[in-house]
Design a protein around this nucleic acid. Structure first.
Lengths: 343, 343
DNA sequence: GTGAAAGCGCTAACAT
DNA sequence: ATGTTAGCGCTTTCAC
């Protein structure tokens, strides 16, 4: 299969007996071209199925209509949904998204960032890896004048736009809900230490305990990975102690479900003896049994807002960075039913 | 923030007092450049953090190191996993992936395909939308000499490489499993009519019934959408009839779970009175209660093999198309336990 | 309103 | 082993 000749503006120019400059202008609808030639050009372009060469355009305009999206994983519903949001906005504005997955590896994140062809990328949308403390690889790109918008997992060090959920408030509401349903011994199983969202949710947890004058037990606060298996492990650890909690607030649904599975193994009745609340509202949480109470994150909206902000940074050189905080809402299900009162 | 000057080979050439051609050669490690200058060039490139301009390279070489991935959705675990597989292989080979999501809309699929900048894409990885019968938009691209590999959802009409699961066998095994566990009145709730995978799974279902001399009841075969809600609807429809099945083989896990939820509403005991088997092995299926028996699809492998094939098509102009069929395996869980024998 | 020509960053002859 | 030059497809002065 030989690559067939791809139509260029030269071809159009020859066919129409005009100069390439005119064709170029006609295609882009600049004002200094007569309506009549413009229409002829457009018609011919359609007829021959002309597709502009983005490489050439990028070379001359110094932009590419590409944005890079860098994130830890896409097999979590949250991130898949965020990407869908990004894609919607990008598509509407004729931007392509180039997808990079770090697999939660800070090392790979660095490698990807350092190899990023800045000349064919107009901007970056980034959610950092959980163990990515230093962000000089992004700072370097940022300093080259390439706009970056961070979402969800956000480094503090770079002064640019950021989009996040109201993690603090979400956690606060979730924990308050537990307390109001009669659970006062609340553990918090969370993600890797040092991530901003981990910190914010933790602070929300603390604030709720404080509001109701509940003691904070350090052994009830466990930092581990974001995965389901970690949730199970965390419960094992919690239940080894004499001082067992009767409720668990998990940093996300995967861990909450991991915790539930382990509790079920121990024949503990969830939503009666022990309550569990998650975060995110993955589809799974509606389907697990008992169904999981969780704080819903506006994933699609996070994606859309992030992309919109990025496009503004791209089009207006001096767009001032914005921090957007989006609200979610508590989805009450079975796993946090009112506590069975002690006999 | 002014865009800082981005280093080009010209800059390197000036700094090193050599010609741009030499720098170009040095960077690409062609054989006709002395080790010593090469090292000097590489060192300087690193020092100044030179990043090649892919637009310029693409313009000259007529390739871009980009591949486009076009698929219906990414919020299903299967597709997210496929993309992860694609990404792994692409990354290792220094290809970027440009992600396009059709949202199950044939119209949008066409629009995306027609706007695809062929000059900045070396190849395509496609899973077609469920209602995309005519594929002339892909054929057109294919005829331009741009290689395409289809996966999972495959049109028959284009003679190129394809990667799929063994849908026929998977369905056969799943249905046979039901029969062997005592369920002989097996309904099949499936996806949109006309998709090859729908057809293959349906044929596997038929073959299993035939092997055990079971009658085929047309009212037990329902075509609808791939979503969970459709699964619930399908059960409603099935249970309206006098002639009710006692087992359901669903085209995917979402529908299987939708079916389960509806059965539970009707207080039908799943895995005793009625069995349910899904397809894909989404994480959800392990967590739903009762846990769902399902045929696991090798999603990651589908992604990796597809991408490998595409890269071969890209590098070897006359690579003959291959059809790869990957095997999955039945994951037996609770939803298909041996049937409660009639009293 | 249109054309001619230069140039974006890089590669690939062709020289030397 | 290195330099010179033309050109990839497009945009953008600068003429007319």
């Amino acid at each position: 299969m030989k690559r067939r000749h791809i139509i260029t503006i030269k071809d159009l120019a020859r066919e129409l007996q005009v100069s390439v400059a005119t064709v170029s202008r006609g295609l882009r609808n600049t004002h200094d071209v007569s309506k009549i030639t413009r229409n002829k050009i457009l018609a011919k372009a359609k007829e021959l199925n002309f597709r502009p060469n983005f490489n050439a355009m990028g070379l001359v305009n110094n932009k590419s209509h590409n944005i890079a999206v860098i994130l830890p994983t896409i097999t979590h519903y949250y991130f898949a949904e965020v990407i869908s949001g990004i894609q919607k906005v990008a598509y509407k504005n004729n931007f392509n998204i180039i997808l990079h997955i770090t697999g939660e590896s800070a090392e790979r994140e660095r490698a990807i960032a350092r190899q990023l062809p800045l000349s064919s990328i107009d901007g970056l949308l980034v959610s950092v890896t959980s163990d990515s403390q230093k962000c000089d690889h992004f700072l370097e790109i940022f300093n080259c004048g390439v706009p970056i918008v961070f979402f969800d997992r956000i480094p503090d060090s770079i002064n640019t736009s950021k989009v996040m959920q109201n993690d603090f408030e979400g956690a606060f509401i979730a924990v308050e809900h537990l307390i109001q349903n009669g659970y006062k011994k609340i553990a918090h199983i969370t993600g890797p230490y040092g991530l901003s969202l981990t910190r914010h949710r933790f602070e929300g947890y603390l604030a709720a305990l404080k509001k109701y004058n509940l003691a904070v037990w350090p052994e009830w606060i466990i930092y581990s990975e974001f995965e389901q298996a970690s949730g199970s492990e965390d419960v094992k650890q919690l239940w080894e102690s004499k001082n067992k909690p009767n409720a668990i607030f998990a940093v996300n649904d995967s861990k909450a479900i991991g915790a539930m599975l382990e509790l079920k193994k121990r024949n503990i009745e969830i939503g009666k003896d022990v309550a569990v609340v998650g975060f995110t509202n993955e589809p799974m949480s509606a389907v697990v049994s008992p169904s999981l109470t969780t704080f819903e994150e506006p994933a699609m909206e996070v994606g859309m807002r992030s992309c919109e902000l990025l496009l503004q940074h791209i089009s207006k050189k001096n767009f001032t960075p914005k921090e957007v905080i989006l609200n979610g809402k508590l989805i009450v299900r079975e796993s946090s039913k009112k506590r069975r009162t002690d006999p």
